[in-house]
Amino acid sequence: MIGAGVSVISVVLSSIAQISIAPFITISGATINFNLLAIIFIATYTNRTTSVGALLLLTLLTGSITETPYEWVLLAYLPTIPLIYLIDLLRRNDDYTLITVVAAATVIGLWGRILMSIIAMSDGTPASFGTVISQILAPGILLDMIPVIIFYGIFKLAGPNKQRVVNTGYNT
């Protein structure tokens, strides 16, 4: 219940931050993606049902306040679903969580930016393959990876999972 509440607050705040703070944090043609951060951490630290619910709420909120068609927003963040299953599988081995989360954020971020570029191009934007890579995707990778690593560090230090159970075997 607490997880669901925190997820709703995170999604609402990330959607608002996306139209108020994000435009000031840019590299070339890429902007930081707070929604990605929120959805990745919800997928990592809550259960499947909460994550899918958060994904739907994010779609409605982001679609409404950015005027992006709802179906495209949902498609952009849809790869989070396999991530939820992957995190569940890896939950027993904490060592791989950071790598999984950063890799997932990069892939989902890339997918989202490619999708948004396709929408823009289908809407009449003349852009070359090189422009998309150099001005949108490459800086986008940086803007997706760095905040995820920083936030993951903060979560590990301040979050509920800061203590790890280590199997040391029986002392006989």
Partner: peptide, 14 residues
């Protein structure tokens, strides 16, 4: 102005 929307190739305000 209530929001700045910056997505790839898009620059809009609400």
């Amino acid at each position: 102005v209530i929001g700045f929307i910056q997505l790839p190739f898009r620059a809009e305000i609400s």
